[in-house]
Design a protein around this nucleic acid. Structure first.
Lengths: 255, 255
DNA sequence: CGGCGAATTGACCCGCATCAACTATCGTGG
DNA sequence: CCACGATAGTTGATGCGGGTCAATTCGCCG
């Protein structure tokens, strides 16, 4: 019962800030009460960070990972000439840098795009949990592999899609990922990004993102305005973007 | 002694086809004799595949992973309109789809770009080894996270670098990765790809790759001809490409 | 020698960057 | 309450990197 309630994000018992993480993991595989308790126990109470704060500097040695509880995070790489590229966006329920558990430092920075709340997990505690509950370990491993799958989808967008399709595809991805953690309904979702942030995801300039947003709006597919994405024609949008959620692995599979 | 020899890829004892994999993993962390034996034992004798053969179809259910022993593999995604994007190149010693261990199917295909030899590993056997040797499990987890780091480097190239720099960066990456497994010397390495393959990595057309190769040659940085990359000016090339091997995590770190 | 895929080169075009102006929004202090 | 300054968004004019199309040439194999 506690398990079922947690699935809907309604539990305010132990470490409720892990609810969205559990929602996300449970769409992949069952997690029993012992595993749930162990996982919740390693996540520290969330700390708040203001928008635009660098949470983790590129290369910094790390002994903990960040679970995003609220807000939006980005994995960013800065170039010599001042350009920036975002390699992934993180929504609540995501570990933004679970890969630092094995990498011990990051090849990119972690930047708060909005005000955020983050629950930290020490690698030491995580190592114990993973050895004690190998199935949970495999699920967390899965979770980093899912990040890689998202990277590959972005690679395809950047390499082979034009600006309009690329943006449409990203908005589809976010719809699905936010739905999983209960932050989107069928009509859309709040998204407190600037057009410049989107440009840094899409390898474009903010000027062009602006034009492309107008294009998508005028096509009657999707609107992004005032920090909210409104999907006018879900089927049309997916088709236009050649979007299929397959790469997000939303399916129950034994570990 | 066997361990030290294996480090140089000279052992022809048990499963010598795992030598390059061990070379690669050992640049990250020590592997003791028991772990080495366990790892070697799960890798089946290599099978041969001709160039251009699809090794794994996108979406196909998987219960084993492919260790590349010889040749070149690519992770490919095909688009509706016939375009193709490669999201990663694999060199000998790489698991091409270790992530299928947790994903159970792939979001992309695996294509042999040249004639290849592949040693298969069943997920069942792998699961046993990983539970028995958690440190080895962490090292393999690291290895999939390294793939993700390579994806991110490509994302940056595709999003923010021009064609010439992008190609230069890729050639630098391959130099380093091939050096690790003893397939490149300081002057360069064999690379049996077509210009069209490179185009599919870089989000370009083969026509433009051709022009860009000429540009790099005329700048005196690097030459790609007859299936061989010759690096004329290593320092100049790295500088030109804004290349740093940091994202390849070539450093000993405790697991 | 003939055939075929890969490489090479030129001419032309288009998507997106760049540069530049202007407007909208919002928080802040006088 | 308004003036302001800062940041984000919007739109137009112009230029360039890389795509497209097409014609050779090269290199290898039968």
């Amino acid at each position: 019962m506690m398990t079922a309630a947690a699935e809907q994000g309604l539990v305010f018992g132990a470490a409720p800030w892990a609810d969205r993480l559990l929602m996300k993991l449970r769409q992949r595989d069952d997690i029993d009460a012992a595993e749930e308790a162990a996982l919740r126990s390693v996540i520290e109470p969330p700390q708040s960070y203001p928008a635009r704060r660098v949470i983790i500097e590129e290369g910094e040695p790390l002994d903990r990972s960040a679970l995003l509880v609220e807000g939006l995070l980005a994995r960013v790489k800065d170039m010599r000439d001042g350009q920036q590229q975002i390699s992934e966006l993180h929504v609540p329920g995501d570990f933004a840098d679970l890969h630092s558990f094995t990498l011990k430092r990051l090849d990119h920075g972690i930047l708060a795009l909005t005000a955020c709340r983050i629950g930290w997990v020490s690698h030491e505690a995580l190592a114990l949990v993973v050895e004690r509950f190998p199935h949970l370990g495999r699920l967390l491993w899965f979770s980093t592999n899912l990040d890689a799958a998202i990277h590959r989808a972005w690679t395809v967008s950047l390499g082979r899609r034009d600006a309009t399709t690329r943006l449409a595809h990203l908005l589809c991805e976010l719809q699905v990922r936010l739905e999983i953690v209960g932050l989107a309904d069928m009509t859309g979702y709040p998204l407190a990004l600037t057009q410049s942030d989107l440009a840094n995801c899409l390898g474009l300039t903010s000027v062009h993102v602006n034009r492309v947003l107008r294009d998508l709006r005028e096509r009657g597919l999707v609107t992004f305005r005032g920090g909210h994405v409104t999907i006018a024609d879900p089927v049309g949008l997916c088709d236009f973007a050649e979007f299929s959620p397959d790469y997000l692995f939303i399916e129950k599979r034994p570990r």
